[in-house]
Design a protein around this nucleic acid. Structure first.
Lengths: 198, 198
DNA sequence: GACAAAAGCGGACTCCGGTCCGCTATAGTG
DNA sequence: CACTATAGCGGACCGGAGTCCGCTTTTGTC
C-alpha cells in the first residue's frame, strides 16, 4: 500500500494519511463492494476529514485508480523494458498480440476498479494519459509490422476499443465469454487488421 | 416534439406535461448547453414538479435520449425496411459499410445527446436495447457476407466499438478527424474484418 | 352528473460528490 | 529551542440527482 508517487518530499502526516486512506478504501471495497460506499465512508473509515481525502485524490475515480496504480505501472514498464514478447525483441506483430493479451489479463484481475474508474467522470478513458500511452505503443507496433497505410490512426483506436474495461466486462459478464475466448477474439482482430487488403 | 410512445392510452394531462418537458429540455439545451442545467431547471422551465419529470423519464440519461428517439427510430426503421444499401436488397458487405456510415452520420448530427446519454448511468451503452439491435443486425450481415467463422461474436463487438458516441467524439473533437476520415476508417475496418485470413 | 378507482402530480426530502476556508501540524532557519 | 512560512487538515457547506408520499385530476361507470 503505497501506490502514489511522493513526487517531491512528502510531509510525514501527509504520508500517514495517504496510506490510511488507501487501506481504508481497500477494506471497504472488500467489505461492501466497489459501488456501495460513499466518500464520507472512506474518510470515516480512514479517520481523516473529507477535505484531506479530496486534497490527495481529486475525486472518486482517481481514488479507485490509485488502488491499482502499482500493477498498472508495472505493466507499462514491462511493455517498454520487459522481456519479449511483451517487451522489445520480438517481432512487432507478436508484440501486438502479446500486448492485448496482457491488457486483457490485467483487466480480468482488476476489472472492478478499471470499470468503476472509467465510468466515473466524463470521457475518462480517452483523456487519461494511459490511453495516450497505449495508443502510441500500438501505433508504433502496427507501423513496424505493416508500414504506414491509410487509416492507420483509425485502426489503432479500433484495436484499442475492445481493450477497455467496459467492453471487456460486457463480454465476460454479460456475454459469458471466458478470458481465453476474449483473447482468441483479440488475436483474430489483430490478424484481420494486419492482413494486407487484396 | 412527441418522441415518446404513448404505449397504451395516455391521460390528457400526462401528454401535455410530457410535451412541455421535452420542449423545455430542448430549449435549455439550446440556451445553456447540454451539461449546464439541472433537472430542477427542466422542471421549472416546463412548469411541472420534479416528481412528474422523473415519473415520465426515469433519469437524466433517458430524458436526453428521448429527445432523439424519433430520428433514432427512423434510422432503425430504414435498416429493416428502407431502400438499399441501408435496407435489404444490397449485398451484405455493402449493407455493412452503409450501416456504419449511417451510424456515423447520425452521431455527427446528434453527438451531444448521444454522448451525454451514454456517459450517464453505468454501462449504458451495452445494456441499452439499441446495442442489442445493432449487434443482431451486424451479426446477420457479417455471417451473410463471410459465413460463420470462429470469433465472429467478438468481431461484431469490435466493429461496433468505434460506432459509439464516446469514441466518435474523441476522434472528431480530440483528434480533429473529419466525418469523412472517420467513415474511411470504418470502411477500412470492415474490409479488414471481412477479408479472409491467409 | 355523481362517484370511485387509479393515473398522475409536485415538492419536500435524502444522500452524495465535491468545494471552501479558517485552523493546525510540520519542517526548515537562526 | 523559538519562530515562521506553508503544506496539510477537517468538517461545514453547497448544488444536484433521484425518491417518497399525500394530494389532485382524469376517466370510466351507472
Amino acid at each position: 500500500m503505497s501506490a502514489a508517487p511522493p513526487a517531491e518530499r512528502e510531509r510525514a502526516d501527509a504520508r500517514r494519511n495517504r496510506e490510511r486512506i488507501l487501506c481504508a478504501t481497500e477494506r471497504l471495497v472488500e467489505r461492501v463492494g466497489i459501488n456501495c460506499f460513499s466518500m464520507d465512508d472512506v474518510a470515516a473509515e480512514a479517520g481523516v476529514g473529507k477535505g484531506t481525502l479530496y486534497r490527495r485524490f481529486g475525486d472518486r475515480a482517481s481514488l479507485l485508480r490509485a488502488l491499482i496504480s502499482e500493477p498498472e505501472q508495472a505493466f507499462q514498464e514491462s511493455l517498454i523494458r520487459g522481456a519479449p514478447p511483451l517487451g522489445p525483441g520480438a517481432p512487432p506483430a507478436e508484440r501486438l498480440h502479446a500486448f492485448g493479451e496482457g491488457v486483457l489479463h490485467f483487466l480480468d484481475g482488476h476489472a472492478k476498479y478499471m470499470q468503476a474508474a472509467e465510468m466515473l467522470g466524463k470521457g475518462a478513458r480517452y483523456s487519461h494519459p494511459v490511453y495516450a500511452f497505449y495508443r502510441t505503443h500500438v501505433g508504433l507496433l502496427v507501423r513496424q509490422a505493416v508500414g504506414d497505410r491509410p487509416n492507420t490512426e483509425y485502426l489503432i483506436d479500433a484495436l484499442l476499443g475492445p481493450l477497455g474495461a467496459e467492453p471487456f466486462v460486457y463480454q465476460r459478464d454479460a456475454r459469458g465469454m471466458s478470458l481465453d475466448e476474449v483473447c482468441a477474439g483479440w488475436h483474430a482482430l489483430v490478424d484481420a487488421v494486419l492482413t494486407p487488403q487484396p
